[in-house]
């Protein structure tokens, strides 16, 4: 097995920059997820690794081989598409055997390897069926078996679950992750489903407008977002605009806020809703303790969102857990919100 390396990879379509300056090192056996809004260049990046899109600039290595200009059939990537892309005129068995035949595996071994691959996805009893005789979930598992049967260097998944219903999506998600870990195969998956990304990945890459915004673990992205985009795209945040200077911050509405950062000038504070404390009276010993009025309460069962307006310009969302003793504020209530100085601050 092998890792993958992308070095300053760019893809331009005329003037349009589909991806720009993508640098990534994917470790051997790692499950990397590319996450980002629609059109941010995730598929383009994946297809460059597979060999269907040639980078305008930069280089791609799989293991020790520079594959930048190698055609797809000379690379060793297993591909799973959103549309399954099973060959409709071949049986499940023949579909899975295709990659083995292309790799000149002796005929005597093919059948056994196909069975092994189908057993991995628990579909060994359906080998003689044609793809259209399978459910969507079964088709996607066959696609997975087909991509893994010839033991590629890298497994590439482009939104593999988005055509499945919610329940199935959870099942196949676990299945993919288990298989990936068992085989220890280097994997890159594209998704714009945040939950999917967070539950499956070893490491995540957040992209926007063709560029990598941040690479890191779930924790890195959630607790230490490096940009306003990541803070809003991974999880939720409310933002306070203002000016920073010497560990102090003044919001657009003129409220003083203590921050840990040494930023100067126009800046924005990102506040995670569950990190904001809500109280009926000012709390002693808390640095950022500001009065406000409840504007809106959104009840979500286990959790409750409380929208608090601090003044004409500033507004935060606090999330509280719905316990027996929770005092749920009502609209127009006067409340106090507070948060730690360690909240993320970004320059504007």
């Amino acid at each position: 097995m092998t890792g993958v390396q992308l070095e300053s990879v760019c893809k331009f379509y005329g003037d349009f920059r589909a991806t720009e300056d993508v640098n990534l090192t994917i470790a051997n056996g790692e499950f990397l997820v590319l996450l980002g809004p629609s059109g941010c260049g995730k598929t383009t990046t994946l297809r460059m690794v597979a060999g269907f899109v040639e980078p305008t600039r930069g280089s791609i290595r799989i293991g020790n081989v520079d594959v930048t200009h190698l055609p797809p059939w000379k690379r060793s990537t297993g591909l799973v598409f959103q549309s399954y892309a099973l060959f409709p005129h071949l049986t499940v068995h023949q579909n899975v055997a295709f990659g083995l035949e292309m790799r000149k595996v002796p005929k005597s071994e093919i059948s056994e390897k196909v069975m092994t691959a189908l057993q991995m996805v628990r579909l060994d009893h359906l080998g003689e069926r044609y793809p259209r005789q399978l459910s969507g979930g079964q088709q996607q598992r066959v696609a997975l078996a087909r991509a893994l049967a010839f033991r590629p260097d890298v497994l590439l998944l482009d939104e593999p679950l988005s055509n499945l219903d919610a329940k199935l999506r959870h099942e196949v998600r676990v299945e993919i992750r288990n298989l990936q870990q068992r085989l220890g195969i280097t994997t890159v998956m594209v998704t714009h489903d945040q939950e999917e990304a967070l539950t499956m990945a070893d490491r995540l890459v957040v992209m926007n407008e063709g560029r990598i915004q941040q690479v890191g673990s779930q924790r890195d992205l959630y607790d230490r977002p490096q940009s306003q985009f990541v803070a809003s795209f991974v999880g939720r945040s409310s933002f306070l605009n203002g000016r920073a200077g010497g560990a102090r911050f003044v919001t657009a509405g003129g409220l003083p806020v203590v921050i840990d950062s040494r930023l100067e000038g126009e800046a924005v504070i990102a506040l995670r809703p569950e990190r904001i404390t809500l109280a009926n009276a000012p709390l002693a010993d808390t640095p950022n303790n500001l009065p406000g009025e409840v504007e809106f309460v959104s009840y979500m069962g286990n959790l409750i969102d409380v929208h608090v307006r601090l003044n004409q310009h500033d507004h935060v969302i606090a999330q509280i857990v719905n316990r027996d003793d929770t005092n749920v504020p009502a609209v127009k209530d006067r409340v106090f919100v507070s948060w730690a100085p360690s909240s993320s601050v970004f320059a504007k």
């Binding site: 597979a50 269907f52 055609p71 990537t77 598409f81 892309a85 990659g99 292309m102 790799r103 991509a147």
Partner: peptide, 16 residues
């Protein structure tokens, strides 16, 4: 014919 079918074949090592 879905283009992905061709790409799937290529990725499995089929020449054009």
């Amino acid at each position: 014919i879905n283009r992905n079918l061709e790409e799937a074949a290529y990725s499995m090592g089929a020449r054009p």
